[in-house]
Design a protein around this nucleic acid. Structure first.
Lengths: 184, 184, 184, 184
DNA sequence: TATGAATGAGGCTTCATTCAT
DNA sequence: CATGAATGAAGCCTCATTCAT
């Protein structure tokens, strides 16, 4: 029976992820319930607020991304390179799980738990990477990790609306701008 | 009556701007009508679709911003400096008129006229500035003006949610990243 | 100046007739005003209620139809033939002035003045024709003129929706059914 | 729950039938919801469009009427008599379920499903009856069953507005007019 | 425990009608 | 007088959320 419940949870999370990607994180609950093959009541039982569901949906991905930070830092001699590669993973997270970027930028009161979880896990990672790069004198200091996360998150919005818009390129420019020596 | 109507229009646009700033461009029409002290019908008469109203609200600002581009370019010897100062004005537009950034990022089908107007006016300006800077060899070529506009627009989202997030600093870094010589 | 007013009135009535034909007698007043090139206030001034306007629009046609009855009766030896030809004119009125049939069947409280005027003018004519035919022993007695008018009116509804539906043929059958000797 | 829902459905259909009869098929959904003692959402859940509701309300009656046709034809030697009795049932349907006649006459785009269902069930019946009567040489051929249905439907409009108007008598005359031998 | 039926608040939009100019 | 701007009631419809089964 536990296995059943497990299976159901996964079906729900998969359905929610799909719907969030297709219709945004404000998609009707009924739509998710329908795709998951269950009643809306079941969803409300497990995830009383929409934010709870969103957190659950993005939990794994955020976790993986968080864990990649220290690993990348250990794997290379250049903290800046590690930072760069980590932002790539972060962007993957945001553009693959369409809906996450939207949820993160959304009116802060809604999705507050998602914000909290997101920052709780990723802010230390970004801090570590930035600090390491600054200590190695590869970048100028003074950029708040929060600003970096949020900036990258914002740049990922609408990533597939128009071929002229390539968030990775802009992010690369942003990181380039961090490098020393600063050009006037 | 013309004078009255004129006054009303202005009251409406002011109210809409205020409401858009406070509650986003999806705020209920009723709320705007209430703030403007008029019936909803009056708004629908002048602006049949929400997008029409949004365009009207942002029209002046966009216009001013567009006209500033060539002027700045003429005023300085460094096209890059002109570009930088123009992006400052552009950011002013986006952060002052809170709601514009949101509207620009919003699902393209809604607010299509706003998108069209926005690009119609500002894309040529951004193109001119980028081209001039590239020709002066101050920046590397290859950045699409559309990407720049949209990237800056995205970076301005949520500009006042958190003091740690300063879009101007990120944009400065982005522009810095455009400069020659490119650092690896 | 009187001539001007006259011209305006006619323009209004023509516009109303056209709109009634195209969009029914419940068409928005603004639509009529727009087609007539005048403000809605002007229409309200001359025709305080919608019914007043409808009456005015159909006045001429109803009048002509009413006057044709006695003339047809005088022109022929067969009152039944006169009746038949008169119903043809009546049907012309209803199918040409699309909207009249609709208005006549419409919820009796609205358009009451139209009903009143319509019956005031046409009921005596229908009565005269039916009585003459009955007295000439061409039709069986006992059919109320009101029922005949209304029945024909109803049969004209939707006259152009479907080629399979031909009100004139049905009306011919109805009149045929009135003839003597009655077949069981 | 199934039992409850069933009961609710019936309450809704009864309320809708009553409201349609009293206020026409364009009556506000809220009014129906109020009379049924439920929220508007419940109605929209079961009947997404107004037409769906109208079809459901008239479904049983139309079905019974359709089934009566062949039975009447089998019960008598005179196809014309069967036709006459069937039109009586048809008129019962239209005058009892006030609102059906209105809906059938209404602008074809709305209530299209009702039109379709109505014709799908009743046109074959009318065809069979007319054909049988024509083959028995009791009526003249050449009347389209669609025209007959629609004509009778139209004649039933406003059946209770005025005591002078008796649709059954007019319909009897219409059928009489179909009989052989045709009188000039 | 899962379900999905029911509720009803809330946003949208259209016009009939009034009335200031 | 003519105008048409403004009002706001009224209908529509969509979900978020609750709760009986």
């Amino acid at each position: 029976m536990r296995a059943d419940a497990q299976r159901n949870q996964e079906k729900l999370l998969a359905a929610a992820a799909e719907v969030f990607a297709g219709a945004g994180v404000d998609a009707p609950i009924r739509q998710i319930a329908a795709k998951a093959g269950m009643g809306v009541g079941t969803i409300y039982r497990h995830f009383p607020t929409r934010s709870d569901l969103v957190v659950a949906v993005f939990h794994h991905q955020i976790e993986e991304c968080a864990q990649a930070g220290p690993r990348l830092l250990a794997e290379t001699d250049s903290p800046f390179a590690a930072l760069h590669r980590w932002t790539d993973l972060f962007v993957d997270l945001l553009v693959t799980k369409h809906g996450l970027a939207q949820a993160l930028q959304s009116d802060s009161s809604r999705f507050a738990p998602l914000h909290a979880y997101f920052l709780d896990r990723l802010l230390p990672v970004a801090t570590q990477l930035l600090d390491a790069a600054a200590e190695a004198d590869e970048i100028q200091p003074g950029t708040h990790p929060y600003a970096l996360l949020r900036g990258i998150g914002n740049l990922c919005i609408g990533h597939d609306d128009d071929p002229r818009y390539d968030p990775r390129r802009l992010i690369a420019l942003l990181l380039q701008g961090l490098r020393r020596p600063a050009l006037t």
